[in-house]
Design a protein around this nucleic acid. Structure first.
Lengths: 142, 142
DNA sequence: GGACCACTTTAGAATTATTCTAAATCTTGA
DNA sequence: TCAAGATTTAGAATAATTCTAAAGTGGTCC
């Protein structure tokens, strides 16, 4: 048995997409790269703008399609805070999002393995935890 | 000292809005009533449609304005689930939202007094917890 | 007992976010 | 090589929200 040292990113994408019946395409790769390169929770529009730099012909609809594909395949998460555009995050580790109401930054924060006690019968598949407040810097500046 | 048996809803609204520098208007009252009468987490558009029945001249922008006023005054919460319209909820008791991916219903669920351990320095003001999965009925029907 | 001022509402236009459509392109397996 | 299915594309269409300017409302200070 050939030892696989570690999955390359490409392998990882191919497998995750494949498991959902989807293919890895250059556009999906590109959109994923954008998410990973700057983990600032960009909106679809921002992803579009960044992706265009490397791939000028990519279209708006494709970015939405790619983001959906990544989300469905468990490669990215949607982050919805308030009204306004949905944001995307490639961090699949269990975490929540802290939104600083002052500087508007979104931070990933580790959260305790969700022992969230739900009423009997509810079957949870996914938790979205958004916390609003002030980040350390803004809290200090009072 | 005159005993105040309990706040009337109107008093409650007037006080909460007042504390934020806002007035209780017939429109705000109406929008609040819509939220309280059917607690199914309606979107702004749905609130608009329902409010129009009792107040045919109310406008779209006013509904948004009223909802914002209620949220700012701590009389209602925004509920954002995935992409798509924001929903509103007059339940100010600490709770999270369970969204059934099958029947699309949104349930209020009690959650443990948030002992959510945040990294040092973060000052949380508000938690939004959305859980996706299957509600008891849909989970059973398999 | 009206003038004033700040707050609100209104209709509709404008903007923003997302989805849809139909045609062109690419992939893959037979 | 072909056909079927998946994907991308530009642009139109729709949905969600915000903006704008004008008109309405209410309380208060002479």
């Amino acid at each position: 048995m050939k030892p696989r040292s570690h999955h390359s990113e490409e392998q990882h994408l191919t497998e995750s997409l494949g498991a959902t019946g989807l293919r890895l395409t250059p556009q999906r790769q590109q959109v994923y790269d954008v998410l990973v390169q700057k983990r600032d929770h960009p909106t679809a529009e921002e992803v579009f703008i960044r992706a265009k730099k490397a791939m000028p012909d990519i279209s708006h609809a494709t970015v939405y399609n790619c983001l959906d594909a990544l989300v469905k395949s468990g490669l990215a998460r949607q982050v919805t805070l308030d009204r306004g555009a949905t944001r995307y995050c490639p961090n699949m580790h269990e975490h929540g999002h802290f939104h600083c109401d002052t500087c508007q930054t979104v931070f990933d924060v580790d959260l305790p393995a969700q022992a969230m006690p739900l009423p009997k019968g509810f079957a949870a598949e996914h938790f979205d935890i958004a916390i609003h407040g002030k980040c350390p810097d803004c809290a200090q500046k009072k």
